[in-house]
Amino acid sequence: MIQPLACVLHAMNRLPPIEGKHVADEAAFLRSEFDGCGETRSGVDKAIRGMVQDGELLRVGYGAYVRARRMISPVTKEPMIGTIVVPEVWAWQTLRKLGVDP
């Protein structure tokens, strides 16, 4: 059995293309995209929580996550976690995945 974390990472990179774009190009993910990972939902949720705590994902809403990266704030010069793309991009991707025409 694949561990939930490995399965989530695999799913983020191997989900089928959406509208001709590969998921590797995607920044936004819904929790429902990882339903097939792990034996239980709680195991997958724990893997996702770990990725959020490690700064690999950023929770932007209920069941909505965006790829993240660690960076230095240009204002405070302190470490922070930010999204890899601007909000207009990940918001559009999230709405599209929810079936809303942005």
Rank of each mutant, 00 (worst) to 15 (best):
Asp101Cys: 06
Gln53Met: 03
Val86Ile: 12
Pro4Asp: 01
Thr94Lys: 06
Val8Ala: 07
Gly20Lys: 02
Met51Ile: 02
Pro87Asn: 14
His22Thr: 14
Leu5Lys: 13
His22Leu: 09
Gly61Asn: 01
Ile48Trp: 07
Arg41Val: 08
Cys37Ile: 00
Ala64Asn: 11
Met80Glu: 13
Arg70Trp: 12
Ser32Phe: 04
Ile2Ala: 08
Leu30Lys: 03
Glu39Thr: 02
Met12Cys: 10
Val100Gln: 14
Met80Cys: 06
Ser42Trp: 02
Ala28Tyr: 01
Gln93Cys: 02
Pro17Arg: 06
Ala28Asn: 07
Lys21Met: 12
Asp54Val: 02
Leu30Asp: 12
Val23Lys: 14
Glu88Arg: 14
Val89Pro: 07
Asp45Asn: 07
His22Ser: 12
Glu33Asp: 07
Asp101Ile: 14
Val86Asp: 13
Ile18Ser: 10
Val86Pro: 13
Arg69Asp: 08
Gly43Glu: 01
Met1Arg: 13
Met71Arg: 09
Lys21Asp: 12
Arg67His: 05
Asp25Leu: 05
Arg70Leu: 10
Val44His: 01
Lys21Phe: 09
Ala28Arg: 13
Met51Ser: 01
Phe34His: 05
Ile81Cys: 08
Val100Ile: 15
Glu33Cys: 10
Gly20Glu: 00
Cys7Met: 11
Val100Asn: 13
Asp101Met: 13
Arg59Lys: 12
His10Gly: 13
Ala6Phe: 08
Gly38Asn: 03
Ala47His: 00
Val23Thr: 14
Pro16Phe: 03
Met1Gln: 03
Gly63Met: 02
Leu95Asp: 11
Lys77Gln: 12
Cys7Gly: 14
Thr40Asp: 10
Arg14Leu: 14
Ser32Lys: 12
Arg67Trp: 00
Pro17Ile: 03
Val60Leu: 02
Gln93Asp: 01
Gly82Ala: 11
Pro4Phe: 02
Gln53Glu: 08
Val85Ala: 04
Ala11Glu: 15
Glu19Gly: 12
Met71Ala: 14
Leu95Thr: 08
Val44Arg: 03
Leu95Ala: 12
Asp45Pro: 04
Lys77Arg: 15
Arg70Gln: 05
Ile2Thr: 09
Arg41Met: 04
Ile81Asp: 00
Val66Asn: 06
Val86Phe: 11
Gln3Gly: 08
Asp101Val: 10
Glu88Asp: 15
Val52Trp: 01
Gly43Tyr: 00
Leu98Ala: 05
Val8Glu: 05
Trp90Arg: 11
Met1Glu: 05
